[in-house]
Each structure stands twice: as C-alpha cells, then as structure tokens.
Amino acid sequence: MDDLMLKHYSILVEFLGKTLGPDYEIALHDIKDPTNSIVAIANSHVSGRTIGAPMTNLGLNVMSDKSYLDTDYRLNYNGISKEQRILRCSTLFIKDENNELVGMLCINFDDKRYVDISNQILKLCHPDKLIEQNSRHSSINSLLQDAETFSDSIVETTASVLNKVLNENNIPIDRLTQEERLKIVDILNQKGIFMLKGAVSEVAKQLHCSEPSIYRYLNKLNKDKSDD
C-alpha cells in the first residue's frame, strides 16, 4: 500500500475499533512484507497479536492462489484465537487499480461474552449437560483443521501450518522419508508459507533436515512445474 492508502485505512481501523467495541478486532495487513504484515490493529487482545505480526495462514493462501481476483471480500469464516476460542472473521481485499492485492482489512469477532450470557439464561430452564452438548464452542476440535489461526511470530505461523499439513496427510514427523518431506514442502509452498522470511529455517527445524535440503526440494518442485 502507498502512504496515502496506509493512512486512510489506518484511520478506518481506529474508527471501526472504537465504533464496534472491544469484542471486535480490526487488523490491517500490508502484503509487501508478509513476515511483518500487520501495520495497524485495534482491540488486539482478541487475537493477542501486535503491529509487526506475520500474515495468517488464510492470508498466505489468498496471496498464493490469487483467489482475491474473483472476489472483493470473504465473510463469516471461522478463526481460532490463542485461547482456543472460535472467532467469526471477515476480510476485505484491498486492491490497486490493476486488481492486484496490496492489503487486507480483517474484522475478527469474539462472541464469548454473549455466549456466556446466553448460557446463563438457558441454564435457568435446561440442565447443564444439555447446554454443554449444544454449545458450538464445545466442537472446536472439528474446526481446527479449516480455521484461520493467528500468530505473533514466524515460529508460530510455520508450526501452525505445518501441523495442519501433517495431520491432514497423516504423516508422522518423527520418521519422514525423503518423498514425504518433498510432499510436505510442496504443500507448504502452495500455501504460501515460504513467502515469510525465515520460514525455510523453521521448516527445516520442524522436518529435522538442513536448510539446503529445503532449497533443493523447492528447486526440484519448480523444475518439475516448468517441465510440465
């Protein structure tokens, strides 16, 4: 984003944060540096992030697959806070005159206070066990694989995306074959994780191999794609 656009949207972040209230986090991402993408944030206690936090897994996916070309925003999807609370998230794709992505304005709503109040009311006429069985917050484990996650460092972001890849593909990290490492690096690359500075080093640590090995895998994948 240019300076004028950054100033405009930063004011909007502050305005929305004060207007919507403390249960709504407003975060502005500049995609020029995905490693330190948050340039303005209001009510940061919702996700626990600060200015300079990296792009989320969903943001990296959008940058990688260019899905922003077909839509201007994404509404009402699930996010998971560091405290393992379900957030309702929406993202506006900020584009330039050529329809290319330059930033993202994200609104993350934490309804915990309202759920607590509604549960207290329901407990006046229903057994506690029934409330627990029907609370959507009790089903958080079923949402973890598809939800957006919020990290304040490259280590957290890389670990979060990598753990999802391993779980989805049922790959044990303690005894990986070379083919499995290549597959993991391919998936991570498609998800945009290597847009983050330092991601190669973190992935190498997680996969118990060297950084040159990760670069070799990436070179092989790029060569195979060019041959196709």
Rank of each mutant, 00 (worst) to 15 (best):
G52D: 11
V102R: 12
I31C: 06
P172Q: 14
C125L: 12
I171A: 05
L162S: 10
R136T: 10
L182A: 15
T50I: 07
L176F: 14
N76S: 09
H208Y: 05
E97W: 04
L162V: 14
S213T: 14
P127Y: 07
L207G: 07
L6M: 12
A199S: 03
Q190A: 01
K82V: 05
D70V: 02
A40M: 09
V62L: 05
L188Y: 06
R85G: 06
R113C: 08
K7Y: 06
G52K: 04
V115E: 10
L221Q: 10
A147P: 10
Q206S: 11
N163R: 09
V200H: 04
Y77D: 10
L28K: 08
K82Q: 14
A147Q: 08
K123A: 12
Q206Y: 09
V46C: 08
G21W: 13
L87D: 15
L75N: 12
L130Y: 12
Y9A: 00
D146E: 11
G21P: 12
N141H: 12
L101I: 03
K183W: 06
S47A: 10
G52N: 03
E211W: 05
S139N: 14
S210Y: 05
S210V: 02
S44T: 07
E25Q: 14
T157C: 02
V39M: 07
D228A: 06
K183T: 13
N98V: 04
V200P: 00
I31V: 12
I214A: 02
D152M: 02
K164N: 13
G198Q: 06
D2W: 02
S138E: 15
L58Y: 14
N167I: 04
L166D: 07
K191T: 00
N119P: 02
Q178G: 12
L124K: 11
P22D: 13
